[in-house]
């Protein structure tokens, strides 16, 4: 089953590269950095699903896989802006269907940053503070389901915070930063509490628990800072465009002829 998922991710990456190539051949710009980021995200998903985690201390290995799936991969995939690319590259009929999905009220509600942050955070608390982790321990299917859920909730959260795709309406920077702050704080608190108290029903060794919880804490910090930088950069770039327009208008007001020529 893991192999099927791995192949599905590989097909997504191939589709992405194909779509980007299609855009480029027809003369549209699509940055290589986005393509690289999306493919790196796919590689992280495959690596997290198939790495030999059994060789690691169990809790630390589990945490490394979940950090990769729930935080690192979503960040890299979201930076690739796959929905925007699909909307540009798809033929008319599927494009219209996708646009309908993306612009739907349900999508807007799901992508509302506080809701996405709540889903992301509640998933983690449910996993580590209820007997769920102990229950899925020796059930590969259930464990895979948890992994997929972490990836999806991470994707929802990252897409909501970055708001780089053309959804119904884009939420303001402050609300997205607030959601990021709340989710990061909750993540840090959970990581610290895991240092002292293992998830119910599990019997990890203390050193394993300590290493895993610190990995969660600092790993969460790093991805959180990366998200914050992307968010702040969006804000800075938007401010730059607004400033540029203001200055151009001011210039246009002084010299109407020049503005008319330029437009």
């Amino acid at each position: 089953m893991t192999a099927v998922l791995g192949w599905a991710v590989a097909v997504c990456c191939l589709g992405y590269v194909g779509a980007a190539a299609r855009l480029r051949t027809r003369g549209d710009a699509w940055s290589l950095a986005r393509t690289a980021s999306f493919c790196a995200g796919g590689a992280v998903v495959v690596a997290a699903l198939s790495a030999p985690w059994d060789a690691w201390p169990p809790f630390t290995g589990h945490m490394a896989a979940h950090l990769a799936l729930g935080m690192v991969a979503p960040l890299l995939l979201a930076v690739g802006r796959p929905v925007t690319l699909a909307l540009r590259a798809l033929p008319v009929a599927p494009r219209r269907a996708l646009l309908g999905c993306v612009r739907s009220r349900a999508a807007a509600q799901l992508m509302w940053p506080p809701f996405a942050a709540l889903v992301h955070t509640a998933s983690l608390w449910a996993l580590y503070r209820t007997p769920v982790l102990a229950a899925v321990h020796h059930r590969p299917w259930a464990h895979l389901l948890v992994s997929v859920h972490l990836l999806l909730s991470g994707l929802l959260f990252t897409f909501a915070v970055l708001a780089a795709e053309p959804v119904r309406h884009r939420t303001g920077t402050a609300l997205r930063a607030g959601a990021l702050l709340a989710a990061s704080a909750a993540h840090g608190v959970l990581a610290k509490s895991l240092y002292a108290t293992a998830p119910p029903g599990t019997a990890y060794r203390p050193d394993d628990l300590h290493a895993g919880s610190q990995l969660m804490y600092y790993g969460g910090d790093i991805t959180g800072i990366a998200l914050a930088v992307l968010l702040a950069h969006q804000w800075y770039a938007a401010g730059g465009r607004a400033l540029h327009r203001e200055r151009r208008h001011a210039l246009g007001g002084a010299r109407p002829g020049a503005a008319a020529l330029r437009d």
């Binding site: 702050l181 704080a185 993540h187 840090g188 509490s193 959180g224």
Partner: peptide, 27 residues
């Protein structure tokens, strides 16, 4: 990292300020 003697309110306050700290730095 965590001295296990901290109160729960202390952990929450620390978590919020830790996250706010680096978010403040970036902003």
């Amino acid at each position: 990292f965590y001295d296990k003697a901290s109160s729960e309110a202390g952990l929450v306050s620390d978590g919020i300020f830790h996250a706010f700290g680096w978010l403040a730095m970036v902003s």
